[in-house]
């Protein structure tokens, strides 16, 4: 394959746009297809590509021109963490390892420092402004960690109005119950509010910030990939 294809893949990932490569396995020729180019494919191939993208599964398919491999490159997963608190430090690093582009939002400049979050995209704005400026897709997870209503509530409000695949909010059962009442006041019904995982994370008895980060990332993974098979 030509180097140009790798450059196009890299650019599409940076631009957060889905794309595929098509390899004709009989001839060995590989093509890069952007979203626009996918639309221009013959209908049977286009359907196979769209189904592969929707399920996030690459696949070899038989076509009129022989066996073709569709390799899916969906945009990177993104994680928005509200609250540059202690748990956010291990969570942001672990999420990067798991393939997420991570943004940490906190208007308190003492918390959101690059020393505490090396290599992580930091936004020092109030969460309502920050989230309005970020792209939230079906491949986005939103986690609030401040348990301060001023900071968490506007972020949760934005998340509930989005198609993000996971919402988690730190806080005890009591804190969470009060939070739900406030969010109900903003017009969110019970079914919508049930999208919030609170108290956040899988119940694995996590105590330290890093352990809590593991439980949150595990719950995000479960939401993304489906229920455990066992």
């Amino acid at each position: 394959m030509k180097r140009e294809i790798l450059e196009q893949l890299n650019q599409a990932q940076a631009d957060h746009t889905p794309c595929v490569t098509l390899t004709a396995l009989s001839t060995g020729s590989t093509r890069f297809l952007s979203c626009e180019a996918i639309d221009r494919q013959p209908s049977d191939l286009r359907q196979a590509i769209e189904s592969a993208l929707a399920s996030d599964r690459s696949a070899a398919v038989e076509t009129g021109e022989g066996r073709v491999f569709i390799n899916v490159f969906n945009p990177p997963l993104t994680l928005i963490i509200v609250g540059a608190v202690h748990i956010a430090q291990p969570l942001s690093q672990m999420a990067v390892l798991a393939g997420y582009d991570v943004t940490v939002v906190d208007p308190r400049s003492a918390f959101a420092t690059s020393d505490r979050f090396p290599g992580i995209h930091l936004v020092e704005e109030w969460p309502d402004e920050a989230l309005d400026g970020l792209t939230i897709t079906t491949r986005t997870a939103v986690v609030t960690l401040t348990h301060d209503p001023k900071l968490d509530d506007p972020a949760l409000d934005r998340a509930l109005n989005s198609k993000c695949f996971y919402i988690g909010s730190l806080g005890s059962k009591k804190t969470h119950s009060a939070r739900l009442t406030r969010l109900e006041g903003l017009g969110h019904g019970a079914e919508v509010l049930a999208r919030i995982n609170g108290p956040v994370g899988l119940a694995i008895g996590a105590k330290s910030p890093a352990e809590i980060a593991v439980s949150i990332l595990a719950q995000m993974t479960e939401a993304l990939r489906g229920q455990p098979s066992s």
Binding site: L6, V96, A98, V102, I120, H121
Partner: peptide, 29 residues
């Protein structure tokens, strides 16, 4: 923006920038 630990495409491009030959292996089925 932080990058994923296994940025395979990015690493292949970086190797080629260093003048190294590169190949990509993919699970087809």
């Amino acid at each position: 923006m932080a990058h994923s630990a296994d940025d395979i495409i990015g690493q292949c491009l970086a190797w080629q920038d260093e003048g190294l030959s590169v190949a990509l292996a993919t699970v087809i089925e």
